[in-house]
Amino acid sequence: MKVQGWMFAGFAVFILAAAVVYGLWSKEPAGTTALFLGFGLCTMIAFYLGFTANRADTGAMDREDADIADDAGELGFFSPHSWQPLMLATGGALAFMGIIFGWWLLFFSLPVILLGVFGWVFEYYRGADRTQ
C-alpha cells in the first residue's frame, strides 16, 4: 500500500500545481474549485493508504524481492448472491433522476436506498443464534 500512497501523493501535488496555474491563468471559479477538490480527495486517499500501510502487514508489492506468485491466494470473502447492490443502484438511480425531474422523487428513492443499505449490512445475520 505504500506504493499506492506515494502515487496518490504525487498525483495530489500535480493537481495542486495544475489548480494554481489554472486558477491564476483562467480566473474561472468552477474549474479551479473542482481542481482544488480533486487535490483534497487525492490527499485524503494518500493519507489513508499511508496510514494503513504502517499498520498492515507488508504486501508483496512493497518488497523488492517479491515474485508475482507471492500475491496469490485468498483475497477475502465476497458475497456470491447478494441482491442488495441492485437495490442500492436502483435507489441511487431514482435519487439522481429526482435531481433531474423533481425533488419529490427523492422521497421515493430514500426508502429504497435505506432498505438496500440495511439489507446489505445485515445480510448474513438472518437466523443466527445470538444467545451465546
Rank of each mutant, 00 (worst) to 15 (best):
L105M: 15
F77V: 13
A30T: 15
D62V: 04
V13D: 02
D57T: 06
L49T: 09
F36N: 02
T52A: 14
T90I: 01
A12Q: 06
L106Y: 03
W25E: 07
Q84W: 15
W6K: 09
E74W: 09
C42P: 00
A69Y: 00
A12K: 12
F39G: 04
M97I: 03
F77G: 03
D65R: 11
R126Y: 12
M1H: 10
R126W: 09
W104H: 09
T131Y: 05
W120N: 05
N54E: 03
T58V: 12
T52R: 14
G76C: 05
R55P: 06
L49A: 04
G116I: 02
G98Q: 10
L115Q: 12
F14D: 01
G102F: 04
C42S: 15
F36R: 07
T58M: 03
R55L: 13
G98C: 08
A53S: 15
A60V: 02
E28Y: 06
G91N: 08
R130Y: 01
P80G: 13
H81V: 14
L115P: 03
Q4K: 08
I100C: 01
W6S: 04
V121N: 04
Y48I: 04
S109M: 11
Y124D: 09
K27E: 06
A9P: 00
T90K: 06
M44N: 04
A17K: 02
F101R: 08
L114Q: 06
I45H: 12
S82Y: 01
A66W: 11
A95W: 15
G119S: 12
V13F: 14
R130I: 09
G31L: 05
A30L: 11
A30W: 10
L49S: 08
G10D: 10
W25L: 10
M44Q: 04
A17Y: 05
F78G: 07
S82F: 01
G5Q: 02
P80T: 09
D65Q: 08
L110H: 11
M87A: 09
I68E: 00
F51M: 08
P29Q: 05
F108R: 04
Q4W: 06
E64N: 09
A46K: 14
L105E: 08
F47H: 07
